[in-house]
């Protein structure tokens, strides 16, 4: 029994209801996507969640690197397989629409 059993995802693996997200769900999604979460990953995830609360959508990567101490290189090492997709997935957000 996984915490993901009751979570609904879209066809690309993003959570349908971002408000149903919990840190436990993030850990489970990360495991499913084969991403190891560290303290630094949580800096990104928490920032993305806060941005979602304020703006209602996933922040762009440029927004993340400008407003946290995580730079582009680190962001890519924290979320292999494309941080644009992975960070949003783990943070329970929809696919980012920003182009940068």
């Amino acid at each position: 029994m996984s915490v993901l059993d009751k979570v609904k995802f879209d066809a690309d693996g993003y959570m349908e209801d971002s408000n149903a997200w919990t840190p436990e769900i993030a850990e489970a999604i990360a495991k499913r996507e084969e991403v190891t979460l560290t303290e630094r990953s949580w800096v990104v995830i928490n920032y993305a969640r806060n941005e979602f609360k304020v703006k209602g959508e996933a922040p762009t990567l440029r927004n993340i690197t400008k407003n946290t101490d995580v730079d582009t290189k680190e962001l890519y090492s924290l979320f292999p397989g494309g941080p644009g997709k992975m960070a949003a997935k783990v943070a329970g957000l929809h696919k980012p629409t920003g182009c940068i």
């Binding site: 990567l61 890519y76 292999p80 397989g81 494309g82 941080p83 644009g84 997709k85 992975m86 980012p96 182009c99 940068i100």
Partner: peptide
């Protein structure tokens, strides 16, 4: 540049 960056963001 935009397309190269978008590709990297998607893991391409």
């Amino acid at each position: 540049l935009i397309l190269a960056n978008a590709a990297r963001m998607s893991g391409v």
